[in-house]
Amino acid sequence: MNRVLALALSEVRILGRNKLVLATALLLPLALGAMIAADGEDGSWGGVVAMQFVFVMLFCVYATATTSLAARRRQLVLKRLRSGELSDPQILAGLLLPLLVLAGAQSVLLLACAVAFGAPLPERPLTLVPAYVLGSVMSASLALATAAFTASAELAQVTVAPVFLAAITSAAWALSVTADAVTTVMHLTPGGGLADLVRQGWEQGGSVVAPAAGLIVWTGIGYEVSRRCFRWEPRR
């Protein structure tokens, strides 16, 4: 565990020195969240917070992890790490841990901002814990899968687009209906399950099992694609 932490801390150090990535991971979701929150008074606060949460996971974990993994592979850093004593899961954990922690901190910050903007306190706050855990793991898993098809950091701007759009669109779709009207199909979309789970933390709703299952399914898809296709060094 100490080794994973050592790798994670070095990633934090690198992240701190890479201003562009840092700004993307920190400021973009906050700015988008603020814009959404500014409209919050007109609609359901659960929906507003859920959309902010989806943005945090997409920007801070999914897009940043995809970019970072593609860049590290291109730089042959992944290959070097694999020549050491860490196992493959330990390497990935070390590289992704800072992003997961950052996403957690941002989520808390956004929720606090929402309350400051006038949102009520969440009715089922414990539901936000599995939403964060499953949402961040799903985002990391999908990032690994996307990185498998991303040759460079520059290309990541293109390759993240399909999942990005699908997640935002499906989250908006699930949030367009009331909590008790969300269908199984909505839960099985990449953003629908996450958005509904967060909304259920804020407002009383239906079962958390269905949206959680949707997140687990997408985590499994990401895992399976990355298991088959992820490469640790550039193609020869």
Binding site: R13, I14, R17, R72, L76, V77, R80, S83
Partner: peptide
């Protein structure tokens, strides 16, 4: 192990 073409994180 010394790789022929191992990389480093240039920021460190």
């Amino acid at each position: 192990v010394m790789l022929q073409d191992g990389g480093f994180a240039g920021e460190l």
